[in-house]
Simulated scan of single mutants.
Amino acid sequence: MKAVHTFKWISDKKAYLNEIHVEELGPLSIGLYGGNSEGSAVENEEAVLAWCDPHGTWEFVMIFDAEHTIERAQFIINIICERKEKLLQLFSYPNHLVFHHTHMYLLSLFTDETFIEESEKMRGKTDCLICLRKDQLVYWLSVGECFIYLFHPELQQCKQGRLNEQRFYERIGRRNVFAAATPCFTSGVRELQKGTNHIVVATDKIIACGERMFKEEHFLYHSLLNVRYILEKMNAWKETNSAAIIGWTVDVGG
């Protein structure tokens, strides 16, 4: 199997209560925060899986925000990791094929009868956001309330940073969007612009924290190069909620 940089974190192994953890993986800056116990935080129900090509061609990240159990996020991560070789093969496809085939492969996993049956046995519900960046294109698939942003100076002038919106009633769980005859989710592909592009994926607690300053995209845009700063602000506000955020920069030549 082709060697790639790998990061996997499940919050039941390390919750990071009252603690900020930032880890670098290739270009990725991965920030984790379990909430402040002074604000009555008692558990962290988030998870992250990240792979990146050592040669900088692509990055693949998954971020989860669960309710009542982290079991389903662990279950999904295990399924993805078991199929790592197939996914890496898909990532090697040319750009006019890679995103379509990766999207269809992911949907085939999520709509598989066994996956649905096993997932619906577990308590609670799970938000999930998947992102693949290859060359100067970025793909995402989102269920629930996690966010993905693509920041670029020209896009910021048009206030076009966020690529998806919150979907409060779409979850993977006992009421599973993938069990429906027509599954509901958000997905898309966007082209990166010439110059410096910043990609950010985050759980929704980032924008709901404290003074809600990060709900304004320009605050998040100017803070994203320092993931630790964002989490330190949350800790200073004694946030009960946990948070996970991944940010990285992609430069596109002229």
Rank of each mutant, 00 (worst) to 15 (best):
residue 2 K to I: 11
residue 3 A to S: 12
residue 5 H to K: 09
residue 5 H to T: 01
residue 6 T to A: 02
residue 9 W to Q: 05
residue 13 K to C: 05
residue 15 A to T: 03
residue 19 E to N: 13
residue 25 L to G: 11
residue 26 G to C: 07
residue 27 P to H: 06
residue 32 L to P: 04
residue 33 Y to W: 06
residue 38 E to Y: 09
residue 38 E to V: 04
residue 40 S to E: 04
residue 43 E to M: 11
residue 44 N to D: 00
residue 49 L to R: 06
residue 51 W to L: 13
residue 53 D to G: 05
residue 54 P to W: 09
residue 55 H to M: 09
residue 55 H to K: 15
residue 57 T to E: 14
residue 58 W to V: 01
residue 58 W to P: 08
residue 60 F to Q: 07
residue 61 V to S: 13
residue 64 F to D: 07
residue 66 A to Y: 00
residue 66 A to V: 00
residue 70 I to C: 05
residue 76 I to E: 11
residue 76 I to R: 05
residue 78 N to K: 15
residue 78 N to D: 13
residue 79 I to L: 15
residue 82 E to D: 14
residue 83 R to W: 04
residue 84 K to R: 15
residue 85 E to F: 04
residue 87 L to H: 08
residue 92 S to G: 06
residue 93 Y to Q: 12
residue 93 Y to V: 00
residue 95 N to R: 09
residue 96 H to P: 00
residue 97 L to D: 07
residue 98 V to A: 13
residue 98 V to Y: 01
residue 99 F to L: 10
residue 102 T to V: 12
residue 102 T to L: 11
residue 102 T to D: 00
residue 103 H to N: 13
residue 107 L to N: 06
residue 109 L to M: 12
residue 110 F to D: 03
residue 112 D to H: 14
residue 113 E to Q: 14
residue 114 T to L: 11
residue 114 T to C: 04
residue 117 E to I: 04
residue 117 E to W: 01
residue 125 K to P: 00
residue 126 T to A: 07
residue 129 L to S: 02
residue 130 I to G: 03
residue 130 I to A: 07
residue 132 L to D: 07
residue 136 Q to I: 03
residue 136 Q to Y: 13
residue 137 L to W: 12
residue 137 L to E: 15
residue 140 W to I: 04
residue 140 W to Q: 05
residue 141 L to A: 04
residue 141 L to V: 02
residue 141 L to W: 05
residue 143 V to C: 10
residue 144 G to A: 08
residue 145 E to R: 10
residue 149 Y to I: 03
residue 150 L to F: 11
residue 153 P to H: 12
residue 153 P to C: 05
residue 157 Q to S: 11
residue 161 G to A: 13
residue 166 Q to R: 15
residue 168 F to N: 04
residue 170 E to W: 14
residue 171 R to M: 06
residue 172 I to S: 00
residue 179 A to P: 03
residue 179 A to D: 11
residue 181 A to M: 12
residue 182 T to K: 15
residue 183 P to V: 10
residue 184 C to W: 06
residue 191 E to I: 00
residue 191 E to A: 09
residue 192 L to R: 10
residue 193 Q to R: 15
residue 198 H to Q: 14
residue 199 I to V: 15
residue 200 V to E: 06
residue 203 T to W: 02
residue 203 T to F: 02
residue 203 T to G: 02
residue 206 I to V: 13
residue 207 I to D: 01
residue 207 I to F: 03
residue 209 C to A: 12
residue 212 R to Y: 06
residue 213 M to D: 06
residue 215 K to S: 06
residue 218 H to T: 15
residue 218 H to F: 12
residue 220 L to F: 02
residue 221 Y to L: 05
residue 223 S to E: 04
residue 223 S to Q: 05
residue 224 L to G: 03
residue 224 L to R: 14
residue 224 L to Y: 04
residue 228 R to I: 00
residue 228 R to A: 01
residue 230 I to Y: 01
residue 232 E to S: 06
residue 232 E to V: 01
residue 234 M to G: 05
residue 234 M to C: 03
residue 235 N to F: 01
residue 242 S to L: 03
residue 248 W to M: 10
residue 251 D to A: 09
residue 252 V to E: 10
residue 252 V to H: 09
residue 253 G to V: 05
residue 254 G to R: 12
